[in-house]
């Protein structure tokens, strides 16, 4: 493990030559695990979608219903969460974005308390103070931020603290492709390489910054190019391919754990639904292709062809996921709303 002072970066010419990591090929059990995680996430998002629209009418009032406020769901982006988080333990940190559910679930955030938070209940992760863009589960070092790219800097600090404590724990910092045009992204990449921090940066490229396509926002075809310019290994993974993500993330995580510094993965994924619920997506030219790009049936076919899944196994996995998710939804609905008299509680410790 490299033991350099954070204030004293290793000059580029003194850094060891980059050794490409060995491929991480998922074994059968891992492949089924990836599938299960993806199904669990999709089942969860479908349940939140269902509950979110309850009592929003007449018409659509964003502030009404069991789940008020903006709702950014992650259907289609499951491969990112499943493929990356498969390499993490609960001691590792994950910082996510305004669209955080898939990563929270894959990293093992307490689903009951997360759901209660989304429902604004006192039993929620943040006792109803945070909401779905502000989920914090310190038991698994999970957090997210509603501000684009601003989840990267705190992840540096978590990585810094993990290394200072002499552990091999790492931080995974996730943003979308739109965030790569923010200063926080570039400052963070520079500092992470400079101080050789154990971070894996993940860019989820779902093609859209709300309604603005990547071609209108970003001057490079791949953010891996930008990361390489900062001196870290980086790769772009196409086609939302969960096993390719698993492989690349495995190498990046291993590199960080071994004290060899940060890496960046840009993953071309898919936003199956609107930016938020209520988004009519009139701007969206690719919408007709979306169902055919759904990563879950695609992976299901792969695993069936490999003889790892059959119809019965699929239906069992989906039933298990539904049971787990409905338990969480019931827990949330059965929980009390916070007492308005306590709105000022927890501003300070």
């Amino acid at each position: 493990m490299t033991t350099q002072a954070p204030g004293r970066p290793t000059p580029p010419e003194q850094r060891p030559p980059e050794q490409p990591g060995l491929p991480h090929t998922p074994d059968d059990e891992t492949r089924l695990g990836l599938y299960r995680t993806m199904v669990l996430i999709r089942t969860y998002e479908e349940a939140i979608l269902r509950e979110y629209h309850v009592d929003k009418g007449p018409g659509f009032d964003i502030g009404k219903g069991l789940i008020p406020g903006e709702m950014h769901l992650s259907a289609g982006q499951e491969p990112v969460a499943a493929g990356v988080c498969a390499h993490l333990s609960t001691g590792d940190a994950v910082t996510a974005t305004h669209r955080p559910h898939h990563l929270a679930i894959a990293h093992g955030v307490d689903m009951n308390r997360m759901t209660a938070e989304i429902f604004g209940r006192e039993t929620g992760l943040g006792r109803g103070r945070g909401g779905h863009m502000h989920l914090f589960d310190p038991d698994v070092h999970f957090s997210c931020s509603g501000i684009i790219a601003e989840g990267y800097p705190p992840a540096l600090g978590q990585a810094f603290a993990f290394r200072r404590k002499g552990t091999d724990r790492i931080a995974v910092a996730v943003t979308g492709e739109g965030a790569a045009n923010q200063g926080a992204f570039h400052e963070s990449l520079n500092l992470a390489v400079l101080w050789n921090l154990p971070v894996v940066f993940v860019v989820e490229d779902n093609d859209w910054g709300i309604s603005v396509p990547r071609s209108v926002s970003t001057c490079v075809p791949s953010n891996a190019t930008r990361a390489e310019a900062y001196g870290m290994p980086a790769e772009r993974i196409e086609d939302n391919a969960v096993e390719a993500i698993y492989d690349a993330a495995g190498r990046a995580v291993e590199r960080a754990r071994q004290g060899r510094g940060p890496s960046l993965l840009e993953i071309h994924t898919l936003r199956m639904w609107g930016h938020f619920e209520g988004d009519a997506q009139a701007y969206r030219v690719d919408l007709t292709d979306v169902p055919g790009r759904d990563p879950i049936p695609t992976y299901e076919r792969t695993l069936k062809a490999a003889g790892l899944l059959d119809d019965e196994a699929v239906s069992n996995i989906k039933a298990e996921a539904a049971t787990r998710v409905e338990e969480a939804v019931t827990f949330a609905k059965d929980s009390l709303l916070p007492d308005p008299a306590d709105a000022g509680k927890y501003v300070f410790a």
Binding site: A93, P138, Y152, P153, P154, L156
Partner: peptide, 16 residues
């Protein structure tokens, strides 16, 4: 400043 103040926040969250 964004990176190193944010770094301070993450480090504080983890007990420094």
């Amino acid at each position: 400043e964004t990176a190193f103040i944010g770094l301070g926040i993450g480090a504080a969250v983890e007990g420094l």
